[in-house]
Design a protein around this nucleic acid. Sequence first.
DNA 1: CCTACCGATCGGTAGG
DNA 2: CCTACCGATCGGTAGG
Lengths: 200, 200
Amino acid sequence: MRAVDTGGYLKGRIRREDIISAAAGVYGEVGYHGASLREIAKRVGMSHAGLLYYFPTKEALLAAVLERRDAEDAEREQLASPPGLEVLRHYLALASHNVRHPGIVDLYTRLAAEAVAPDHPAHEYFKRHYDEARSGVRDSFRVLAESGELRPGIDPDQATVTFIALMDGLQVQWLTTPDAVDLVASLRFYLQSLLTVPLD
Amino acid sequence: MRAVDTGGYLKGRIRREDIISAAAGVYGEVGYHGASLREIAKRVGMSHAGLLYYFPTKEALLAAVLERRDAEDAEREQLASPPGLEVLRHYLALASHNVRHPGIVDLYTRLAAEAVAPDHPAHEYFKRHYDEARSGVRDSFRVLAESGELRPGIDPDQATVTFIALMDGLQVQWLTTPDAVDLVASLRFYLQSLLTVPLD
DNA sequence: CCTACCGATCGGTAGG
DNA sequence: CCTACCGATCGGTAGG
């Protein structure tokens, strides 16, 4: 009966994952502050007090959502390329994945905007997120600059900040006016305008 | 006693302006949904019920904030240039003004992110805002394309969407990690990379 | 404009 | 995991 006896722990882990997924959905719709534990709990079929059995506070649940996002990022990082063109293509692929999963875009956009407030519980998370994103992209643009694949006169550091800003800004504009924005095409257009070689 | 008798109306108008300013500040800090009428009222020195004497609902106050923003935009539009380089320089000047007034950036960033939700009371406002911004910038890029001031191969429509997205994304990134982002320099860098002539 | 109040909702706790 | 409850806060109304 071993297989059955471990069921308690397994069920708990599954339950936690369900709660995290539901929370991510609600955060995307109404932000973190706008999300109530009662709404999240309802979506997973329990009372809000039951949810607090798994996550002791509202902030602990947010931390779990962000941790899972990091874990998923790290998983993708496993198959990450060395700095260069491939990294930029990887961002294009990510954007194209996101367009098919608007919930992810909603979650990220809503939380990033809320978290500009220094006392927001996700503020440090997004600071770190931006630092890491910049350093990864910067390495790639520098490699491209040295190999002559970056257009002459283009500063790799400026290319980095603007590229990341472009992704963020396109997401807001796309969510607001989806018919007027082709997220992937715009990103491709920008990258191509910086390069001397074809992206694909 | 005529001059004194009109005082009642004048004081009311000033009071309304004070409330709108306080509301804009709170929206920038905690968003529209996170803002309470009591906090806004406290900043202008009255009770929240008193505030509701001037603005009958929470949404009416938001509408007034957005209306004043439009009025300020229209005022600036008065001295607007015909489509072309001057319009882009005008956006640079606006960005440089915003950097010295972070509250404006906060307000815009917070509301824009909240308003991606179709049922947000500012959703239609931001849809219109994006439509108008795109059509103004697009005209300028098209003029520049015809005069050869836009780099060959650059699609004016793509330049438009990405330019506006860049402004939005830079604002979020700048608010989160101010030391790592030079908002005006990044904007200038991008515009210059699209042009065949020096911006300044 | 204020005080006083309403019903609704919030995160969290007690006690099983 | 639940029911039942707590104190706090919300937008809005009544009645001056």
